[in-house]
Design a protein around this nucleic acid. Sequence first.
DNA 1: AGAAGGACCAGTGGTCCGTA
DNA 2: AGAAGGACCAGTGGTCCGTA
Lengths: 250, 250
Amino acid sequence: HLLSADASHALDALSQEGLSEEKDAAGSGVWEMVVAKQRRRSRMASMDEDDADETEDDGGNERQREHPFIVTEPGEVARGKKNGLDYLFHLYEQCREFLIQVQNIAKDRGEKCPTKVAEAGVHMRTRQVTNQVFRYAKKAGTNYINKPKMRHYVHCYALHCLDEETSNALRRAFKERGENVGAWRQACYKPLVAVAARQGWDIDAIFNAHPRLSIWYVPTKLRQLCHAERSTAAAASSSITAAGVDHLPF
Amino acid sequence: HLLSADASHALDALSQEGLSEEKDAAGSGVWEMVVAKQRRRSRMASMDEDDADETEDDGGNERQREHPFIVTEPGEVARGKKNGLDYLFHLYEQCREFLIQVQNIAKDRGEKCPTKVAEAGVHMRTRQVTNQVFRYAKKAGTNYINKPKMRHYVHCYALHCLDEETSNALRRAFKERGENVGAWRQACYKPLVAVAARQGWDIDAIFNAHPRLSIWYVPTKLRQLCHAERSTAAAASSSITAAGVDHLPF
DNA sequence: AGAAGGACCAGTGGTCCGTA
DNA sequence: AGAAGGACCAGTGGTCCGTA
């Protein structure tokens, strides 16, 4: 609708394939085209009547913010001055590509590339997305990627990676209910903690074990929720155990 | 000689066992006794005629520096107001114990404990020795452990871990020649680079693969030396290869 | 009101250089 | 002179809160 014919085609092709497949690690192409369109729409506003009203009145170098996110279902493109959640998740994949580039540069120069060794066969390194990566992204011209935003939604991306079905269901439900992005974001914590519960509560290990998630720091709040929930679960199960041996405490 | 009878006994027992064996991960005991003696000697100077001259003249709360290191051979205890290299390496093991304690505390509290997952069977964490660990060491009363010192000698400890025979031979040679600690320290780089060459030049991977070394950051200078040497080696071998195919360039 | 992101802050890795 | 380590500094992880 808001995209040109070629970008729409690209997006359709993408939707059919399903976004979650990782297929082609570097510079996927299809999404880049879509993203480029979106950029062009919001930057070179004079070429697009849609944005004319907000950019007419000041000289042109006003700081243009990224359109806010709205809750979209999988495969859906946001209409109007909004961005959808597939686009949000795509940003995480873009950061991953920037990280890989930064790593390769560092490796060539014999510079530090610390942290962890991937357990996967080859001796590949898997550093984290650091400030350096965000700086690199900025230099590469992708001003729409920034640290506060990426950190803000990490746990949403984590749910998408670790339990895509639940993530998709949650998106559909929140879209249907007309909830805003903030409410959806908050709601992502609970199913994630459930994933952690199933896998032994070690949220760091869970992040590390996932190839695309391992490069992201575990968000503080998620870590705290997992810890609190584990303690509660442990207390509950031990009181059940105790109840079997001793008398019930009530 | 300078140690009391029981500490001397402890040290003898230790020398016979060989320091390099890791045996008992937590709070070994024997060295702790030796170290405690050494501490007592340099702190409570009035009880020991040896230190009387340097502590007599100011009120008692002068900042007492650690005795400087001298080059000793394996098993040898430094005489006079000196510390030996077994003691130096022991400090690295002490830091490791502090790290393990810090990790356990963090784990209980559900706090962050980032970086890397050990490839060894169990899902144990192996963070690095950070500022937090040095702070913990200070709080634990081991004022003789500090960051600049530990970072200064990391590569010496690395050689001790990775090629103990060469490390021991180097110590004996430098002791015999009467070299000072600085000269010995410098000399540790070369055999370490040789180890790296044998194992594919990836010094981070080499550190990470060793259970006691993996917790230490690779020193900048060592990383640079490995990188430079690898480049040289690569250039040399490619010129040989080229010489086989093309004409010799001279 | 809901949301994007500039910019700040406490604590890090790294090591210099005033000290003994 | 040779060496130990207090203390500083640039750049980090983390996220608040002034902005649109």
